[in-house]
């Protein structure tokens, strides 16, 4: 552990900053997924899956807050939460426009946003995993190995939903 400790003290500030950045990005991704979910109340699969996989990002943020303290960064372990009331209001609005076809175009735009956010998070995990290896930090590496595949699944989901809905959105209506 002494090697790890000395590497941490040498490079800790840079790594800490990377952890902080990823913590912010995961929180943003969770927020984007929850926002998508609220907007697409009438598209039930999007509504539920987006919520289910937002949990992954929230868990990642919690885990990053835990390892962050090893690198001297204080991060909020509790994921940002939207006001439940606000979310309900948005859902009602979404139900009212559910009979229109145009919101589907909005869905494509939102999925594109999720895909980009997740791609950024994925690269951040890549950087952190490489760093963890170089620093022989098993805890950090383990976190990367657990979290990164879920980020890739979030990205693939956005991609697959676009593939599934694009033709219907663009050609019919």
């Amino acid at each position: 552990m002494s090697v790890v400790r000395s590497l941490r003290s040498l490079h800790g500030n840079k790594v800490g900053a990377a952890i902080e950045e990823l913590h912010r990005a995961e929180n943003d991704l969770a927020g984007a997924l929850l926002h998508l979910s609220d907007r697409q109340r009438t598209d039930q699969e999007v509504f539920h899956v987006a919520r289910d996989i937002a949990r992954w990002s929230q868990q990642h943020a919690r885990d990053l807050a835990r390892v962050g303290s090893d690198y001297g960064v204080e991060l909020d372990p509790e994921p940002e939460d939207e006001s439940a009331l606000l979310a309900r209001l948005r859902q009602k609005a979404a139900e009212a426009v559910g009979r229109l076809h145009e919101p589907s175009l909005l869905l494509l735009a939102d999925l594109r946003h999720i895909h980009r956010e997740a791609a950024g998070v994925s690269l951040d995990w890549e950087v952190l995993a490489q760093t963890a290896q170089a620093m022989q930090d098993r805890e950090l590496l383990g976190l990367c190995q657990d979290a990164h595949p879920q980020t890739l699944r979030q990205m693939r989901w956005a991609d697959a939903k676009v593939k599934e809905t694009a033709a219907q959105v663009m050609v019919t209506g």
Binding site: T42, Q44, E45, H101, P103, S104, E164, A167, Q168, T172
Partner: peptide
């Protein structure tokens, strides 16, 4: 075959939004 054939629940969704 650009995507999996549409499942029933999604078909009802397309009826709902007027594209079917």
């Amino acid at each position: 075959h650009y995507t999996a054939p549409t499942h029933a629940m999604q078909m009802m969704r397309y009826v709902e939004d007027g594209s079917i």
